[in-house]
Amino acid sequence: MNHKPILLVEDNSSDVLLIKRALGKGHVANKLLVAEDGKEAWTTSSVVKNTTCLRPVNCLHWSY
């Protein structure tokens, strides 16, 4: 099991909660970091050590 934290960039609190719930239901125990926009995401990810930037996951199918 990978213990790296998951960074979620989402400004809709309802969506954040739904994602947290989904992760819990899927027994994903990784730490979840939430950022509301790109700037915040950048500062958050630089705080966490040994960050390797994985490809961004667009977990929702609601494509524009």
């Binding site: 309802s14 609601w62 524009y64």
Partner: peptide, 18 residues
């Protein structure tokens, strides 16, 4: 329309599922 209108819609669907 695509972004803001759909966000609440997603919420309704998601919480109904929950």
């Amino acid at each position: 329309v695509s972004h803001d209108l759909r966000a609440p819609l997603r919420g309704i669907d998601g919480w109904s599922l929950a």
